[in-house]
Amino acid sequence: MADRIELLGAFADPTRQAVLNLLRSRPSTVGELADRLPVSRPAVSQHLQVLKTAGLVDEERRGTRHYFRLNPKRLAELREHIDGMWRDALAAFSNFAAKESSGNDKRRKTRAYPTKRSR
């Protein structure tokens, strides 16, 4: 389990955020990342080490190449966060729609049952 301060530090750097954003689409090698960022390969390597130590990224060997990918746990957290966001949003919508349509019903009922009939 990575230290929290370490995690926050890893996360605070804009190049590291860019690396994380690229890795979300697909696992990549140091060279592939360096091609898409305005920094050198050694700099990308260094950033990856920081991200790895913080538990944000892991490394996978395929043949002779080393691929880096976003830690699946972090991706699961992102999914959970967005899932929860939609759950809250749809619940809010359902409440709003119920209130709006019951308001309409009342108005309809008022019109449907007008004044008390006198005998």
């Binding site: 697909r26 696992p27 691929y67 999914r79 749809l90 919508f93 359902s94 729609a97 119920a98 349509s101």
Partner: peptide, 17 residues
Amino acid sequence: TNEEKHEPIRQSVHVDC
């Protein structure tokens, strides 16, 4: 391709209208 597959997020709710 190295493209990773991610299942879509799905949510549904009942609405009274």
